[in-house]
Each structure stands twice: as C-alpha cells, then as structure tokens.
Write a protein that binds this DNA or RNA. Structure first.
Length: 512
RNA sequence: GGCGGCGUAGCUCAGUUGGUCAGAGCACACGGCUCAUAAUCGUGGGGUCGCGGGUUCGAGUCCCGCCGCCGCUACCA
C-alpha cells in the first residue's frame, strides 16, 4: 500500500498534559493504527516543544537549567501517552541535537534564499519574564505574570518576510483545495491571508534557550520558528535526504484550531521559502468544551477544583482513564466529531459508555458466549455464508474504511455499531437459545461470532486492548492488529471449532 | 473594532453544489423477549431548523439586518 505520515503538534512542555492534548493525540493514534491495519507504511510522530522564555523562566524558578527542566516535563507527556496506549513511532523533542541541525539547515536555506532580513523589533518588555507583551495582554498596564511595570524596548531581530508569500499562499490554497480541512477552517486561513500578511520576527537576543541562529551569534530562533520544523527533523531533513523525500510532502498534520495560523499560513510559507513543497494536508479540529455535569465529585476532589472553576485544561487524562479505563476514554474521544467544537462532560462519557460499550458491544459478546456455552458446549461454530449479516458486515467494513480515510473516526465507529445492532437484532429474530442443535443453530451463532471477529478488527484502532481481549475470548489466535483490512474483514473468516470464553463483562455497566 | 465559527427534536449532534432535509444517537412512552452486563428487539412521539426581512416555482441550505455564544487578532501551544 502507500505511506502514511501523521503528526500531532508538539506540545509545549510548560503545560501539563490534559484532555485537550489527549483528544488530538488519541485521534492521531487511532488514525495511525487504522492505516497500519490497512497495510500502509506508517510514520506517526508526536513530541514536545521545549524552547522559549516561559520554559527558561520555569527552570529558573525551580533552580535548574532549562534542559533539565524540559527533561522532567517532557517525561510527563511520554507518561501520559503510555497511559493512553499511544503507538507513536517517534517522540521528538525540540531540545535534541538532531532538531538543532534540522532547524539550522532549514533556516539557513531560507536565509540564503533571501527571505530573512534584519529589522527592529519594538515592544513592551518585562525584565523578569524576559519577554514581550502586547498592550492587550497587559493587566492594568503591568506584566500579566508579575504585575510589575513593563518598559518599551527594542532589539535587533531577524524577520521572516511572510508578506512576500501572500500570492503564493493564495495560489497554493487555490490549487490544493483539500490541503486544509475541513473547509470552514480553510476559509479561516484564507481570510487571514487575504487580510494582509506582515513580516514576523523570528529571533531573539534577549533569550538564550533556543536554537542558535547559524549566521549570527547571539541570536536564537524564537518559538514557532523552530517548533514547526520538528516535522521535518523527524524524517531526517538535512541529514537523510532519501528518507525525507520518501515521506515529504505527503504529510498529515492533525492540529487544534488554536494553532491554525501557524500551521496553515506560516508553515506553508516557510516551506516555500526553504524551497520545499508545503505540507499536503493539515486537518484542523475544534475544541472540547465543558458542558452539563462536567466531572464527578471524586474527580473534582482529585483535581482540587470546584465544578464552577474546573476547566478542560485542568483535567489530566489519567483522572479519566483511572475511572473509566483506557479504551472507554479513547472510544469517547474518538466518538466526538473531528472538526467543530464539541461538548464534553462526565455525564456524556457515562452515557456513551453504557449505551455503546456495555449495552451493545459488551452485552452482545456476553449473550453470544452464553448461548454458545449452553447450546454448543462452548465451541464456536463457523458462520453461515448466506447469513443476512454478511452484506451488512461488508457494507460496514467499506463505510468504516472510507470514514477513517477522511479523518472521521466517529463515523467509522458509528458504522461499526450499526453492525453490532444488526447482530443483536438477528439474535432477537432467530432466538438461537430456543433452537435445537443443528445447522441452523450453528449458522446463527457462527455468524454472531463472525460479527464479533470483524468488530474486533474494526475497533482495534480505537480500543486496541479491548479488541485483543474480545479476539481472545472468541478463541482466535494472535491479535487483530496482526491482520489486515479489508481482506481479513471479509465474511467467513471465523473458522469455527474454537473455544469461546464468556468471562467477566468486557465493559461492566456503570450505575451513575 | 477587524476577521472567522456557531445557534436544528428534552440532551448531544448530522444535514455535499437550494427541491423525500426535517434526520441520528441518547432520554422518554408503549409493546415483545427473557440468551445477555435490569441488557436486547420493534413501534412511536414531531422541533415555526436563533429572530426579522429578501432572492427563488421552491431555502436549515443563498443575500441583508438583528440577537446570543465562542475563537483568533501576529511573535503568547
């Protein structure tokens, strides 16, 4: 098959990992897992953005060096992703030597191409922050962090001539209508470009914690200018041209809407300036917004927040996974449509969990296992080739695949649950628990088992551990991810003659 | 202020280029079943598609105005 290069943003280490990060990362992970299942060669990366004044400041506050501080805080992200079963192929940190090399190579080319020039940066500066603020950011005319007066400062900076790329960006958007999705986000980016672009300051002399500017000692690159290049670092830009060419520009950047501007305007322009193609696809998703009953009392206590003051960015992913389990939280994050903002609440997780996981999928597995136990001595029969479920399964596999391809995990899962519903309905209409032993009984139960097999395959990108457990319970060897779609999802793959184990409920129903 | 997004059944949301587009899931009601995690299956209820105009043979779907909520506003993930 093809190659699939997928990225999350690299997260800023000064933040603690929260549900918003998890939303992006879990969706990316599921997409990566789907593409592996579909036979693509996948490169899925995430990482951390570690430079900038805030990190240097935090390090100083903790009496340590920025690099040490970044080591500690980057580890929190790695731990969070382990906890969510994230299967990244690379975790890049912008403080790594390989990144310094890539950034310097990339920006030297931009410089050599004439798109960087020296200029004067002026702004309101807080000495203690070692950083500039805009007037809107000030609180009562003072630094929002320290409450102390700011001073007007100016320093020589290098500027990227973003303004020279207006026409090329517009032409790019015109010729690549699918580059930025969904269309509403594309329009937002276009609107910004049409509004007029200005040169942007990309270096600082007031800061040491950053990638040194190769042509001028004393300057370091500033924030986004080094961070965005991480996507190229990871594929060997500047050091392994062959590998880089294999993956670029056919990349998929999955990002949140708050960083649309950097990815959809600056980044393509930077690529053009460096003489490489802009990224093929940037998929912009919305935010999870708290609504309704936000969290349980236990969770609020753990977070030391009240229901009124808790924000989504206060919620660490493990607060949720400790309560619901990893796969149910993954599932919930994946059932949220990727694109617009969505509502997020504790109640909605419970509702979704009970309806989809406990009542439909979990209960289907349980009832099938029970009847196989009582009617077939615990040995699963093979499916009926002419089962009415066969065409439903085929349609589901096709729909799910198409949905994953268009970055719509929620639709892939919705399709899969229609197959689960069809299997539950078939059991109602045929009532195998009333049948006598024979071909008809075997056909119905074998077909139900085949649905479970196909469902395990289809949900494995979303809930890898649960899929493996379901796979094991219906007696299959190996794991779903050892197989491939769509071939192995074709009707009739369940061989029959396997031991079927009921076990405890896969997803115990929740009371509250 | 400027730019952009959103406002569709009790709840959460789908609704390509205007004409079965008035839908899904959850919740609810009634009925069936009792293999199953008080699970499942069937049926049903109808919301002036934020408000007011307009274009059109016909508009959640296009245009204008208004109201409400939200994001971005440049070097701050």
């Amino acid at each position: 098959m093809g190659r699939f290069f997928l990225t999350t943003p690299i997260y800023y280490v000064n933040d603690a990992p929260h549900v918003g990060h998890a939303y992006t990362t879990v969706n990316a992970d599921a997409l990566a897992r789907w593409h592996r299942l579909a036979g693509d060669e996948v490169f899925f990366m995430t990482g951390t953005d570690e430079h900038g004044a805030k990190v240097a400041e935090s390090a100083a506050e903790h009496g340590t060096e920025p690099k040490n501080w970044a080591d500690q805080t980057a580890a929190r992200f790695e731990a969070a992703w382990r906890g969510l079963d994230i299967s990244y192929d690379d975790f890049i940190r912008t403080s790594e030597p390989r990144h310094y090399r890539a950034v310097q190579t990339f920006l030297q080319r931009v410089y050599d191409n004439g798109y960087i020039e020296k200029g004067l940066y002026q702004g309101l500066y807080c000495v203690r922050c070692e950083d500039y603020y805009t007037e809107e950011e000030l609180v009562g005319g003072n630094c929002p962090n320290h409450g102390t007066p700011v001073t007007f400062m100016e320093e020589e900076n290098y500027f990227f001539k973003l303004d020279q790329f207006t026409d090329r960006l517009l032409a790019w958007y015109e010729s690549e209508p699918e580059a930025v999705r969904p269309a509403s986000k594309r329009n937002e980016a276009l609107g910004f470009i049409r509004g007029g672009l200005r040169p942007i300051s990309i270096t600082r002399t007031s800061l040491r914690w950053g990638v040194p500017v190769p042509w001028d000692d004393g300057h370091v690159f500033y924030v986004w200018y080094d961070a965005l290049i991480n996507y190229l670092t990871a594929i060997g830009y500047g050091t392994d041209d062959e590998r880089c060419a294999a993956w670029w520009p056919n990349v998929h950047h999955l990002i949140g809407k708050e960083i649309l501007r950097f990815h959809c305007v600056w980044w393509p322009a930077m690529c053009m300036a460096a003489g490489i193609d802009p990224p093929a696809n940037i998929f912009v998703h919305g935010w999870l917004l708290f609504g309704g009953e936000k969290l349980s009392k236990t969770m609020l206590q753990r977070l030391r927040r009240t229901a009124e003051e808790v924000k989504l960015t206060d919620v660490a992913p493990d607060v949720l996974t400790d309560d619901f389990g990893v796969d149910p939280i993954r599932y919930h994050l994946l059932r949220v449509p990727l694109g617009n903002d969505s509502d997020f609440s504790y109640d909605s997780i419970v509702t979704r969990y009970n309806a989809d996981l406990a009542n439909n999928l979990g209960n289907l597995a349980a009832r099938v296992a029970t009847v196989v136990g009582s009617k077939c001595g615990g040995t699963g029969p093979s499916p009926d080739p002419a089962s009415p479920l066969a065409p439903v399964a085929a349609e589901t596999v096709a729909e799910a695949g198409a949905a994953w391809e268009r970055f719509a995990p929620h639709e892939a899962l919705a399709a899969t649950w229609r197959l689960i519903g069809a299997a539950n309905a078939l059991l109602e209409s045929t009532e195998p628990w009333k049948m006598s032993p024979g071909a008809e009984l075997d056909g119905v139960l074998g077909s139900a088992l085949e649905v479970l097999r196909i469902v395990a395959l289809l949900v494995s990108p979303a809930m890898p551990a649960s899929a493996r457990e379901l796979w094991r319970r219906i007696g299959l060897p190996g794991a779903p991810e050892d197989l491939g779609v769509p071939d192995d999802a074709a009707w009739g793959g369940y061989p029959g003659g396997l031991r079927v184990e009921k076990g405890d409920p896969l997803f115990p129903r929740r009371r509250s």
